[in-house]
């Protein structure tokens, strides 16, 4: 499972935790991180300049400054590039609010993980 992963969270410690967990599981090939939705979009645009590999999985926080997770999903849906449908977006948030869960679902993202992330949660998700 050598995945290219993009982590999007304004809390650097959260990105660190996710990265450490993925590394321990040995499921990631390359891991990049962005501090908000806009930085993540810039990184994705950068992929086409050939600098980076297109991510297989995006771990996305919801509550972020500048561009939050919801706005990122909307902007991402408008992007057009080959094999976009292969990218898996996983929302990773500390929000347990049912309204947030519903909003994410309405935006067409099916994977919603609540923090703290754990090896068990990731394995269970990747198995599917």
């Amino acid at each position: 499972m050598n995945k290219n992963v993009l982590l999007v969270d304004d809390d650097k410690i959260c990105n660190f935790i996710t990265e450490a967990t993925l590394n321990r599981l040995g499921v990631a090939k390359q891991i990049h991180s962005a501090l908000n939705g806009k930085e993540a979009l810039d990184l994705i645009n950068g992929y086409f300049q050939g600098d980076l590999a297109i991510p297989d999985v995006i771990f996305l926080d919801l509550n972020m400054p500048i561009m939050d997770g919801f706005q990122f999903i909307e902007a991402f849906k408008r992007l057009e590039f080959p094999k976009k449908e292969n990218i898996l977006i996983i929302v990773l948030t500390s929000s347990v609010n049912p309204e947030d869960i519903q909003r994410v679902k309405t935006l067409g993202v099916d994977y919603y993980l609540t923090k703290p992330i754990s090896e068990e949660k990731i394995l269970a998700l990747l198995k599917n």
Binding site: D11, I13, I17, R24, N63, V96, K115, P116, I117
Partner: peptide
């Protein structure tokens, strides 16, 4: 309350995540 609970829960979850890693 919604925003505050999120702001309080976030760092707590970080501590828990770090504890998970440390324990392993």
């Amino acid at each position: 309350v919604y925003s505050v609970s999120h702001n309080l829960r976030s760092p707590l979850m970080s501590v828990q995540g770090l504890l998970n890693i440390a324990r392993k």
